[in-house]
């Protein structure tokens, strides 16, 4: 019994790390640009398809595929930000929402056209391997995904701490007006931020491609999952997204085990409602809930 719980908890922590990477992408975009990327899940699925394609066509395994996906989606993020989203920064929320819904539709349409509606599985040897850790059997794919995600998160944290543009991003998130005052070029900062946000989503998608089958209709689930984590952790907080991701990973694992698996999402939504009502700033969100 205990072993089962441990396995579920471990599995939850592992997948939670990847969830955290997805959520970090979302939260950094919101924290800096105050824009809610409702198409985030579609970007994750794009990463999944990239992972699938790279494996099927070039036998590239998940980890390098994740790096490639990160680069591709970084480019996409910069492109979308500079061409379209930059015009929407001052616009009302409902307008922004429709913009991202339009993105989601276009991306889903492209996915369907290029890949069809059927699920695409990555049948790599790693999908079947397991590691034995302290007596527990863990999916190798999960462990690798989690490890890579963690490395990427740490790399991002280092980037934000030690590079000039990383500091500029943090400054813009802290005080957009102040950033203008000191001569930070917001266009550049936003473009890089958008790129990073999407890169996180894409990399995470590629990392989970050996675990879940790629399907366009997974996208809304990923979007909502990312939201739940980000709200619970605190909009704009990286630490919050990390902790939130781990929490949700474990919570969903246990909810699926103890409650009806179909209803495990209900638990997450209930939690989301509770957080929105009682502590909208989330665990680590210092800023006042807007």
């Amino acid at each position: 019994m205990v072993e089962l719980y441990l396995k579920v908890a471990a599995g939850g922590l592992l997948i939670g790390t990847v969830y955290a990477l997805i959520a970090i992408g979302l939260t950094i975009i919101f924290g800096v640009m105050r824009v809610v990327n409702f198409a985030h899940g579609e970007m994750v699925v794009m990463g999944m398809y990239l992972g699938y394609a790279l494996w099927t066509l070039f036998a590239i395994p998940a980890i390098p595929a994740a790096l490639i996906a990160a680069v591709v989606l970084f480019g996409l993020g910069v492109f979308l930000q500079v061409t379209v989203v930059s015009r929407f920064v001052g616009r009302p929320q409902h307008s922004q929402f429709i913009l991202f819904i339009a993105f989601a539709l276009v991306i889903t349409g492209l996915h369907l056209m290029l890949m069809g509606p059927d699920a695409r599985s990555v049948m790599a040897p790693i999908s079947f391997q397991t590691y034995s850790v302290g007596g527990l059997r863990l999916d190798a794919a999960r462990v690798q995904a989690a490890a890579t995600a963690l490395v990427m998160i740490l790399a991002l944290v280092a980037f934000l701490r030690f590079t000039f543009i990383g500091r500029a991003i943090r400054a813009a998130a802290d005080n957009p007006l102040g950033a203008e005052v000191v001569g930070i070029r917001s266009g550049r900062v936003y473009a890089v931020t958008a790129g990073i946000g999407l890169a996180c989503a894409g990399a995470a998608g590629a990392l989970v491609s050996p675990l879940f089958d790629a399907q366009p209709f997974l996208a809304p689930e990923f979007t909502l999952l990312a939201f739940i984590i980000v709200i619970i952790g605190g909009l704009g907080s990286l630490t919050g997204a990390l902790i939130g991701g781990l929490l949700i990973g474990v919570a969903e694992g246990f909810a699926a085990l103890l409650i009806n698996p179909a209803m495990k999402s209900m638990f997450s939504y209930g939690l989301l409602i509770a957080v929105l009502l009682l502590r909208p700033a989330g665990l680590f969100g210092g800023r006042e809930a807007r």
Partner: peptide, 15 residues
């Protein structure tokens, strides 16, 4: 005869 084209067109129009 292309699956997904409708979604794409719909999305582009809304955009």
């Amino acid at each position: 005869g292309v699956y997904g084209l409708s979604t794409l067109i719909y999305g582009l129009t809304v955009l």
